[in-house]
Design a protein around this nucleic acid. Structure first.
Lengths: 337, 337
DNA sequence: CTGTTAGCGCATTCAG
DNA sequence: CTGAATGCGCTAACAG
């Protein structure tokens, strides 16, 4: 590859002049500029972003590490981050931790070694203690995505989780439901904990006996989750309404329904967070609390960019509103009271 | 940040020794090594991948540019590429061209400037002529993903598209269908052209009159696609079987069915390529030609890695088999002959 | 308006 | 077994 030296020699100027026409960073006499331009052309010169970054100590790149690219909500966030980055002329370095704390730590270190200008991080359910220490001391700007820890000093973005859940419970209560089963998953994940919290609050406000509500999940992975759901579905005291707190949990629940020969909404009411694609094309049509995942992604980039350009701006925690898409799966129940 | 110089000073050795213990690239006396290790620890040294790459002229990173991260098949491929890259210790730089030729060109240039060791490229439907020239002359290894151009000299990976379509037509023919509508989309995309080709071949082999088959699509974007589908659906001479060649085309088609009050398979048979997630959880259950998208991604990385390590290996074009998942949407038709 | 030069942080050759 | 010195390709003082 041709370097700036080759170009300078061919144009009969100094490397500094070449650099300055490349970056338009100081005035250059029209005809010398012209000569440089031609030399650039003739040598098929391509800038070396590495050398440039080393010298300027800025890479114009940002890193993104997500805990689970499999979930559709994350896929949309990644998409949003990518688009926003492109729009700002930033290259995106992507790493997937697959919910694994050691992979996550390695990924963050790798991105930091590559001197990304900033980092967007959706922490795994259980981060390595080292990771927490590492990012706490890190000078590179960091934005937390989706999995929000208000106690930490970072800029953060996530959907509003608690209130929509409360509203959802209210909606189903109004339809006559009194016994709920909530498939909560691993509540070490903040978004899931917030959703469960909204559930509890909602029940309390409605005067429901919390003990009668079935909660599947807690602070840790639930290896026999599917069995637990099956049991809840088969129970003689079965809840009339089921709420899944994420797409994967929803899929498990629907499978359990199917295995038990239950249909929605005929036999049970059902609603989920995040949900599936094309929800109106298929049956059952499921009431879904939908987060603006793409926008969560673009917002993360925005926060990061602001932080990169002005370290002094106050820390921000942005919550984006979710939308409840009401569909048939929560309709048609008649209270048995 | 501490540099190698700081570490060397603290350990009382030369920078070269530090470098050698870091990379384990020449023998070092046990106790000097120990001193270096301690100094590394005390300074919280972090290697600078930029400087390292500049010096070694290798970045240990690969670039991926996809034409449409929205399609679920691409999302899976990205996932596969990411996982394979991680496994090989490569960082992934991701860019999305959004099917736009100028964005695509810019993305490729940006990645090349960052001196990726290799590039995986799912070309947009209509690439800029400049892009074609650029990659043709490029020395950086390149692998073509999903959108395959056998005439080009690159390593390439894609699913087998033609045969499964032929088989699918045969399956539906056996069920009694004689009039097909194929929603083919933009046939400048090789995978779509191959699928359409398989359709034509399949019809020919079955003695079907090609003129009676309705083909929606061709070499270019079809802006009024949905209108055309609606017309095909409303036609008095409506086909009894519809085949969509991609997920987005399938979604359009299902919407058209819905708008016309048609149900699958009661009123029309339907099948699609790529398809939707959780196909057995929802109705209609759609016969789907499913490609191993994740594996397509990992294979691309494998080919690229081989090429990076040995430029002389012969060029390879890998086709991965698709699976036809037969479901209700193509059952239950009784020939009207 | 332009050229000379000193590093950015590291790997690596060459001496010792 | 170790150190000194060079340069990867570029930007940005500084000097003219």
């Amino acid at each position: 590859m041709a370097t700036i030296v080759d170009v300078a020699r061919l144009a009969g100027v100094s490397t500094s002049t070449v650099s300055h026409v490349l970056n338009d960073t100081r005035p250059v006499e029209p005809d010398t500029r012209q000569r440089v331009l031609e030399a650039l052309e003739r040598t098929a010169y391509r800038q070396d972003a590495l050398a440039r970054a080393l010298r300027r100590s800025r890479t114009d790149s940002i890193g993104l590490v997500v805990s689970d690219a499999g979930e559709p909500a994350f896929a949309d966030m990644v998409h949003g981050v990518g688009q926003a980055a492109t729009r700002l002329g930033l290259t995106l370095l992507l790493a997937n931790s697959a919910e694994d704390s050691s992979q996550e730590l390695k990924a963050v270190q790798a991105l930091l070694e590559r001197r990304v200008d900033g980092l967007i991080l959706a922490r795994a359910a259980a981060s390595d203690r080292k990771l927490v220490d590492l990012i706490a001391e890190e000078r590179t700007p960091i934005v937390l995505l989706d999995r929000v820890f208000p106690a930490l000093r970072f800029d953060q973005v996530a959907a509003e989780n608690q209130d929509p859940m409360t509203a959802l419970v209210g909606h189903m209560f109004a339809a006559g439901h009194r016994r709920f089963c909530v498939i909560a998953g691993d509540t070490r994940v903040p978004s899931l904990a917030e959703r469960l919290n909204g559930f509890t609050l909602g029940c309390g406000a409605l005067g429901l006996n919390p003990d009668e509500q079935l909660v599947l999940g807690g602070p840790g992975p639930l290896p026999d989750l599917r069995d637990r759901i099956d049991a809840a579905v088969a129970s003689g005291e079965r809840a009339s309404a089921f709420i899944a707190c994420s797409t994967v949990l929803a899929a498990e629940t629907l499978q359990a329904f199917q295995a038990a020969g239950l249909r929605t909404p005929r036999d049970v009411a059902f609603a989920t967070f995040d949900g599936f694609s094309h929800p109106d094309l298929f049956e059952p049509r499921i009431t879904t609390v939908r987060q603006p995942a793409f926008d969560v992604g673009t917002t993360a980039v925005q926060l990061l960019q602001d932080r990169i350009r002005a370290a002094a701006v106050p820390r921000r925690l942005v919550r984006l509103q979710q939308t409840i898409e009401y569909r048939e799966s929560t309709e048609g129940f008649v209270a048995a009271n």
